[in-house]
Amino acid sequence: MFQNSFPDRAEMASLVARMLWEIKAVHFSPDKPYKLASGMMSPVYIDCRKLISYPRIRSAVMDFAASTVLREAGFEQFDCVAGGETAGIPFAAFLADRLGLPMIYVRKQPKGHGRNAQIEGHMPDGARVLVIEDLTTAGGSMFKFIDAIRAAGGIVDHGMALFYYGIFPEAAERFVNGKVKLHHISTWREVLAAARQDKLFDEATLTSVAAFLDAPLKWSAEHGGVSELPTQ
């Protein structure tokens, strides 16, 4: 079990942001923005999968995740931890180990042969399931997994994202409407603050990223991307 129970929330967010910069999991590129799957143009990009390759950082992040869940949800609120295919699977294993809970994982769709299973592992009917993903942008992918678990008889009232974009009102609305409390550790705001503090970029780059975080779809439209998020 993790050693430092319930560290300060702001400190956890700041530390994770610095860890992400250290392992080059986050990138700023306003001049050559990234095109996301949604069609949105973005000056920021993150790859949380890199965390699995850095054991010391990975361990600290999972300690923070466990602390966040226990503080915000409670100590005896879950029967198992579920990871979504594919990025959420290793983090589900790490967090389940921290919390002393069974683990399952959820496919994006039924595998199409054999038992045609979408959920792998043992999930008793009525199990209270904590769903974890490495990151969530607007919540769409997490709810695909949540819906599958609910359809199979599981109960999902909480989700955990190690990293949350935190810039789309649609995301907050989706979790409220879906009756899921989203827990997270760090956001792009903390990543930008760490970049400013450590002087990682020139002021023009930091200003452009800040403009994106304040109005992401406006920034996207101005740089050749979509001006609204897809409904699904």
Rank of each mutant, 00 (worst) to 15 (best):
L70Q: 14
E72H: 09
A73C: 13
A73D: 14
F75L: 13
C80M: 13
G84I: 14
T86P: 07
G88T: 02
I89E: 04
F91R: 02
F91L: 01
F91V: 04
F91K: 02
A93V: 10
L95R: 00
L95I: 00
A96W: 05
R98D: 07
R98K: 15
G100T: 06
G100P: 11
P102G: 12
I104P: 08
I104C: 07
V106H: 03
I119S: 02
M123F: 01
D125A: 13
A127F: 07
R128L: 03
V129W: 10
V129S: 06
E133M: 06
E133R: 05
D134N: 12
L135H: 07
T137V: 04
G139N: 07
G139I: 01
G139K: 03
G140A: 14
G140P: 06
S141C: 01
S141F: 07
F143G: 05
K144V: 13
K144H: 12
I146C: 05
A148S: 15
A148E: 10
I149H: 00
I149Q: 02
R150T: 02
R150W: 03
A152S: 08
G154D: 04
I155H: 11
V156S: 09
D157C: 12
D157T: 15
H158N: 10
M160R: 00
F163W: 08
Y164I: 00
Y164V: 01
Y165N: 14
Y165P: 08
Y165I: 09
G166Y: 08
I167H: 06
F168W: 12
F168L: 09
P169F: 10
E170G: 11
E170S: 15
A171S: 15
A172M: 11
R174W: 11
R174A: 13
F175Y: 15
N177E: 15
K179T: 11
V180G: 07
K181P: 00
L182P: 05
H183T: 11
T187Q: 14
W188T: 12
W188D: 11
L192I: 06
A194M: 10
R196P: 09
L200S: 00
F201Q: 03
D202F: 02
D202W: 00
A204H: 12
A204G: 03
T207E: 15
V209F: 07
A210D: 15
